[in-house]
Design a protein around this nucleic acid. Structure first.
Lengths: 98, 98
DNA sequence: GTTATAGGCAAGTCGCGGCTTGCCTGTCAA
DNA sequence: TTGACAGGCAAGCCGCGACTTGCCTATAAC
């Protein structure tokens, strides 16, 4: 379903946002690849199961799509659900006059 | 400071999003006014203290600014912090071709 | 075959966040 | 001055979510 609520909940966690950052940097990574990168860059707690559960949340929110291939599962970023939440409140796009 | 983390955390709660919706509909409301409206429209749990704490979170995130006047405290929406989070990930703005 | 790799599932722990409860401060009207 | 109204503060309860632990399945390499 990917309700707005799920999207906001998914974005509410710092580790999940870091995962989205990672997929933005390199799309189509596997679970272990993401784990490795997260432990490298950020000092985030990133055990395999933790990341797996985070990915499940992101997938349910529609922010991540998966593609199975053999024993690998590639994760792809999908920013489409972000459009709805972006347009929810009026955002001033103009720069403040100095 | 209003770190990105605070903004996402603030947006993670449904009641707080409803408050932002309310302020979008009518800016500059007081605490009791918001309480009344929330109980009207949504069946959300919206005791005075609960809403007060939610407003504190929104204020810390920079999404709400307050203005004191006598015994009233008016709450104003500020969508500026949303700009940063909107631009964090690439969002496809084109409509899908039908 | 056997072993290592990539991932899944389920139960359990634990801290944080949302909400309540109770009481207090400050402002306005009578 | 007294009472009603708008809001604040602090401690406590409690459920949910993040993380772990342990074990299991499946694909690929040897």
């Amino acid at each position: 379903m990917a309700a707005d609520s799920d999207v906001f909940k998914a974005l509410g966690d710092a580790t999940r946002r870091a995962i989205l950052d990672e997929l933005t940097d390199k799309d189509g990574q596997t679970l272990f690849e993401i784990c490795g990168r997260l432990t490298m860059k950020h000092g985030l707690a990133s055990s395999r199961q933790a990341i797996s559960q985070h990915l499940a949340v992101l997938e349910q929110a529609g922010l991540v799509r998966t593609r199975r291939q053999g024993r690998y599962k590639f994760h792809h970023l999908d920013t489409e659900p972000l459009r709805a939440i972006v347009e929810r409140w009026p955002i001033d796009r103009e720069e403040p006059n100095p």
